[in-house]
Measured scan of single mutants.
Amino acid sequence: ITIHVNGVTYHFDNPEEAEKFAQKMAKTYQLKMEIHNGEFHME
């Protein structure tokens, strides 16, 4: 699972971890999250 946050790329093997991380980042930084081709993009 690949997550892009403001141009920084994070890779996770565990989908649950990826989702937790994505939600935490979105909440902490008030980010808008989109999913493209199974990759999370946040800005």
Rank of each mutant, 00 (worst) to 15 (best):
A18G: 07
E19W: 14
K32I: 14
I3D: 00
H4D: 03
N37V: 06
E34R: 06
N6T: 07
F21W: 12
T9M: 12
A22I: 12
H4G: 03
M33C: 15
N6S: 08
Y29H: 15
F21Q: 00
P15W: 14
E34I: 14
N14H: 06
I1M: 09
E16L: 09
K32G: 11
P15S: 07
Q23D: 09
V5D: 01
E19Q: 10
D13E: 10
L31P: 15
V5N: 01
N6R: 06
A18Q: 01
P15G: 08
N6K: 12
H4I: 08
M33S: 02
Y10L: 11
E34W: 10
P15Q: 07
F40N: 05
Q30T: 02
F21D: 00
A26G: 06
E17P: 01
N6C: 15
A26Y: 13
H11P: 02
H36I: 14
I1Q: 05
K24Q: 10
T2Q: 07
H11A: 06
Y10P: 00
E34K: 05
I1W: 11
Q23L: 10
G38F: 06
K20I: 10
E17C: 15
E43C: 15
H4C: 14
G38N: 04
E43L: 13
I35V: 07
K32L: 13
N6F: 15
V8L: 10
G38M: 05
F40K: 03
K27S: 04
E39N: 04
H36V: 10
N6D: 11
N14D: 10
T9Y: 05
I35F: 09
L31A: 09
K20N: 08
H11M: 06
M42K: 04
N37L: 09
K24D: 11
T28Y: 15
K32D: 14
F12C: 02
D13I: 10
I35N: 03
Q23A: 08
E39M: 05
A22T: 04
E19L: 13
F12R: 00
V8T: 09
E19Y: 12
M33T: 02
K24R: 10
M42H: 03
H41V: 08
K32N: 12
H41W: 13
E17Y: 06
H36Y: 10
A18W: 06
F12Y: 03
N6G: 10
F12I: 01
M25E: 01
Q30M: 05
Q23Y: 10
E17V: 08
F21Y: 02
V5S: 01
Y29Q: 14
H41G: 02
E19N: 11
M25C: 13
K27R: 06
T2Y: 12
T9S: 12
E16F: 11
L31W: 05
N37F: 10
Q23I: 10
F12A: 00
E34Y: 13
F40V: 10
E34C: 15
K27L: 11
M33P: 01
E17N: 05
N14I: 10
Q23E: 12
I1V: 07
E16M: 10
V5R: 01
H36S: 03
